[in-house]
Design a protein around this nucleic acid. Structure first.
Lengths: 182, 182
DNA sequence: CCACCATACGGAGACACTCTCCGCTTACGC
DNA sequence: GCGTAAGCGGAGAGTGTCTCCGTATGGTGG
């Protein structure tokens, strides 16, 4: 990649992170290009789809996901406490930007989504927590981690779209947890 | 209302129902106007916001909601069976059109949404089912019908956006039910 | 050091959608 | 019939996505 190309690439990602945090994932890409001081053509060449740009932004997010999972794995407490804490971490992670829960949860299904790679990290983190709980014999039969992702993703999506307060979301997550645990 | 105005109004609603079923709730309104044989101005005068149009479409849907709730109230079986059957009915009702679950679930929160009136019908139906189960002493303490709407709405939203099969959705609803029941 | 060319830039503009404004038309009461 | 209020509809402004292509430039071989 040419030096000027790399410069533009980095600048676009940086600006996009900022704009998306302000306006959500459906902010205007032309605005991103303008603020980054490049033409729309340049933006769309680097990132043919909106999701490619989101994917690039998420690089730093991946680290936070892994950190969150690591904490959940060493956490002391009853299975219910561990699961609830992980759920809250999970919701927080996918709710960093408006529209994030819906985007991420639906991307975790189909492997040909441009942000699939990043979602795999989240999937793996969730799998580890499920595995720990399963070894403790805490989960009901038939429960799998895909179900969990969908259920918690659903709660997060509703919370995101309805601007729900964390204090309202917690009981919802508790219901899901109770439904999953023995 | 003048005769020609009523004619146009009805025609727009009819066409919109068709278009929304084909393309989801975010289909182009100009397309609806064109297919209905009216100018965009006419459409936007009758329905200043997209939601007003959706609201008009839902008139017939209201009947189906009430019918579904009535069935759930007289249904025989364990609380779990009753609740699950109602959940499936509920999901089916809000998933009639693509994008429906997200739209309806987030509208059920804020009372100033243009489709709020229609959602009230759904809320009331759900309340009745909750009330029946509560009288049977089947629900956990602290559970309320708003939580239920959000949880099931969340599952429906995920299912809608991920094109999930009903056979995959059922276990998710079962988890929610288990979390709500004693 | 410079000339060349692949690589990359950027903006004009095609296309799509939402929504408004306003001149024209038409239904309907008198 | 006729006057007028109600209603129509389309041009077009505003906004967003995405592409095409003439132009500019970084990097490399001579």
């Amino acid at each position: 990649m040419r030096a000027d190309a790399k410069r533009n690439y980095d600048r676009i990602v940086e600006v996009a992170r900022e704009v998306f945090r302000e306006q959500g994932y459906d902010a205007s890409l032309d605005l991103v290009a303008k603020r980054a001081g490049v033409g729309p053509g340049t933006l769309y060449r680097h990132f043919p789809q909106r999701e490619n740009l989101i994917d690039a932004i998420m690089q730093s997010w991946v680290d936070r996901v892994e950190e969150g999972a690591a904490k959940a794995l060493v956490r002391e407490g009853t299975p219910r406490e561990v699961l609830l804490a992980w759920f809250e971490t999970y919701v927080a992670l996918i709710s960093l930007h408006k529209g994030g829960p819906a985007k991420i949860t639906s991307a975790m299904g189909n492997s040909d989504s441009p942000i699939a790679t990043k979602c795999q990290v989240l999937t793996r983190a969730n799998d580890q927590v499920v595995e720990r709980l399963r070894q403790e014999g805490a989960l009901r039969d038939g429960v799998d981690s895909v179900q969990m992702v969908r259920l918690v993703g659903g709660v997060a999506t509703v919370a995101d779209q309805g601007d729900l307060d964390p204090t309202v979301v917690r009981p919802l997550l508790a219901v899901v947890a109770d439904g999953l645990l023995r």
